[in-house]
Nucleic acid binder design. Structure first.
Lengths: 119, 119
DNA sequence: CGGTATCCTTTCGGATACTG
DNA sequence: CAGTATCCGAAAGGATACCG
């Protein structure tokens, strides 16, 4: 196998814990920019270290973009999906469709409205 | 986040190293049963431990099915995709489509015909 | 042939504290 | 506010050897 395979690399970063959830969180707001603390607050239990890592990774991949307003104090730094990132949510929906078709008997999933499945 | 979320769990096992490749290897042959050693040989560098783990995991998930012929010596044990597994290859294609659209400039990917991307 | 068992290294993610 | 630095434990994966 080739670790540089594009498909594999995509699976690789998509599957890291929290990543999909971050993408979906940015997707939920439409085209609005979201702040670090805002994203963090919406995802109970993520630590700043991990959130920071994921955001940087997604930015490197081109899935999200970042803008910083250094003029204000405190600093505002904001994120949103790129077009590339918005299309990636379609992939997430493909997985969701498959999962809900074949795994709907998963009792935990069926009994609640988790942010991922509700998308 | 909920670790029991069906979508997340799907990402979880799909993204384990080798898993996608195993699914694609079984897909390539159509509906034929493939043997352990055959799969192993087609995936250079996978160790029997990992292949064994993945195959059992995929069987538990219902993505592949296994049959054993204990009458013959040596034993023949064979695997193939279930209908559920065949539909999962469509998800893989969705990822591939996204990846090739947005990441085609990945030089390693563009310069060769890896088994995943050629599918 | 089709795996297990054991060991070992690497990677990942969480907790906590700190800073420009 | 938006992170970074440091430390730690858990988990994943690879190497190798062995077995019915």
């Amino acid at each position: 196998m080739n670790d540089n395979c594009t498909v594999y690399r995509t699976m690789g970063f998509l599957s890291k814990k929290w990543t999909l959830l971050i993408i979906l969180e940015l997707y939920r707001g439409g085209d609005t920019w979201k702040r670090f603390s805002e994203i963090k607050r919406s995802m109970k239990d993520i630590t700043p270290k991990i959130l920071s890592e994921r955001l940087r990774n997604l930015e490197e991949e081109g899935v999200i973009e970042r803008r910083v307003d250094t003029a204000t104090v405190p600093i505002r730094s904001e994120y949103r999906l790129t077009e590339m990132g918005r299309e990636l949510t379609e992939v997430a929906k493909g997985i969701k469709t498959w999962a809900l078709k074949w795994k709907i008997n998963n009792p935990v999933c069926a009994s609640q409205d988790c942010i991922v499945c509700v998308l």
